[in-house]
């Protein structure tokens, strides 16, 4: 089994590691770096739980090899919290709108929503649903994730029409 040297930045930290060529990015993040916030729900690129940002774009870490992202900048759910560990804007919005139940799909949604917000487009609900359609949530029925996205991408931050009494 051949090994390969990877050199990449993850959540602001540079890592140089020798890894098996067949190691997926997800396994590298979880097992080599201990970043277990990236979850493996299907390992065939459908469920979206393992979504991370690679050079700012969302990517399925289960379908990438660690070797493929050498030289890239990767951000995982852990890298999207505030520097003191408190939740970031997207993370807070998801929680506030009741978008989390078991928490397993949550990291993927946090990453997908972060990318969506970074695009800076004003989206209607239908466009938001389409944009989040690569992430599966089995618990919530998507209500909270969509409400969070409406808040984060809408013209008027706040949660008009939200029935969670989230107080924002």
């Amino acid at each position: 089994m051949s090994d390969i040297v990877v050199d990449l930045e993850v959540n602001g930290v540079r890592y140089e590691r020798t890894v098996p060529a067949r190691l997926s990015l997800a396994d590298f993040l979880r097992d080599s770096l201990g970043l277990t916030g990236t979850h493996l729900g299907c390992e065939h690129g459908v469920c979206g739980s393992c979504t991370v940002l690679v050079d700012g774009r969302s990517a399925r870490s289960c379908l990438l090899l660690a070797a493929q992202v050498s030289g890239a900048t990767v951000r995982t759910v852990e890298g999207l919290a505030e520097s003191d560990g408190s939740p970031g804007t997207v993370q807070s919005a998801l929680a506030r709108h009741g978008g989390i139940q078991c928490g397993f799909c949550t990291p993927g949604f946090v990453v997908a929503l972060t990318e969506l917000v970074a695009e800076g487009k004003e989206l209607d609900e239908e466009e938001i649903r389409e944009a989040l359609s690569g992430n599966i949530c089995r618990c919530t029925g998507y209500h909270g994730a969509i409400a969070a996205a409406v808040e984060l991408t809408g013209p008027d931050p706040g949660c008009a029409g939200c029935d969670q009494e989230c107080g924002s």
Partner: peptide, 12 residues
């Protein structure tokens, strides 16, 4: 529960 789940600190 949400603080740990939202920030990737859940432990499955």
């Amino acid at each position: 529960e949400d603080l740990r789940f939202a920030t990737g600190q859940g432990r499955f």
